[in-house]
Design a protein around this nucleic acid. Structure first.
Lengths: 190, 190
DNA sequence: AGCCACCGAGGCAAATTGCCACACGCCACT
DNA sequence: AGTGGCGTGTGGCAATTTGCCTCGGTGGCT
């Protein structure tokens, strides 16, 4: 039911790129991979057709946002999905104005990516999350993202987070990965 | 550039609406205010001209996003700014796809709003913050947002955040950061 | 009157954090 | 060979913070 899609993945982390490419390729698409902007552009020149592009916003020197326009110029029907380690709303708005189809924060699985590509973003997000996440969850996710942007370097992540290295260590140990908080304690009313 | 702008503000909280309208009106614009979608639509019918619209995404029953299309249909050059208590990236993307010019999270001062209206969102947010915000800052902002969604009710906000009410009290009193941030202008509350 | 919800605060035990230290592995360099 | 830098893992201890109890006060409501 799915004709092979031609997909361009631009991700500067080589490992993550290959991982993601494999996961995507196994699913549905033929995937070209680039690790920076110039590589992406040269691939663009070689391609006769492109259905979708998945761009890491953080490409070392380059900014994934700057690839949106060239891609859309060459392949107007190509759907462009931005990925970013930790998203900012301003960046999401900017990406969308430049023609991006959707915007995701890492970590994003292959199905996340495909879902985001196939979704109609204009109709998403209409429902506001009713309950803000708990502080603990927010902290945990932020820690994970920070850790990831620092390649798992605990010392630097701790410094970036503004907490002691020892404290980060302890916190990481305490939450091996355990509980998912999905308790929807429904507030009586708002 | 001080020609009077005609601006439509849609905000369901009456107090906040009036406050914001006054602040905006004092600055630059003639402001019409609506508190729900139908009110906004009827104002739209009466207007011959509209430069900008500021929509709260959370309009009780209604969703501010659904106003974007009618506004843009009637006034294609009207800039539309979405406001939301705590933003989600998905909602920001959806709003932009529907034609919104920009997307802000509360609290937003009048100058924040005007800046966002005048900014070129396609060029903003291109620079990712290299360093993730400190945990303290993240927590503080999340606390503020949560507090706001609960109308300043400390008890309920604490419960939503998953921390003790006493702890929230103490944290609020300490009022840590706010010095680290670049600028926060005193809202014109007189 | 009562009742209820909320805020503010004191006090105290328990948990957490900050910060010192040290050992170990790894890698680059003289 | 060896030396230094860097990152992690661990222990211990004091200071801070949190959780949880209490109480008093205020304002709105039946």
């Amino acid at each position: 039911m799915t004709e092979p899609m031609r997909l361009l993945l631009v991700e500067d982390d080589a490992l993550l790129a290959e991982q993601t490419a494999r996961a995507l390729g196994r699913r549905v698409a033929e995937v070209n991979v680039a690790h920076d902007a110039s590589g992406a552009l040269s691939i663009l020149d070689r391609l006769a057709h492109l259905d979708a592009a998945v761009l890491d916003q953080n490409l070392g020197q380059d900014n994934g946002l700057d690839l949106i326009t060239p891609i859309r110029e060459r392949f107007p029907h190509c759907k462009v999905l931005l990925l970013t380690g930790y998203g900012s709303i301003a960046a999401a708005v900017a990406a969308t104005h430049r023609g991006a189809h959707n915007y995701l924060t890492k970590p994003a699985s292959a199905s996340d990516i495909l879902d985001a590509l196939n979704a109609d973003p204009a109709s998403l997000g209409t429902a506001l999350p009713a309950t803000p996440p708990s502080l603990q969850r927010l902290e945990w996710e932020h820690i994970q993202r920070t850790l990831e942007t620092h390649d798992g370097n605990i010392s630097r992540a701790a410094e970036a987070l503004g907490i002691h290295r020892r404290t980060l260590q302890r916190r990481l140990k305490k939450r091996p990965s355990a509980s998912e908080y999905q308790r929807e304690k429904s507030p009586s009313k708002d």
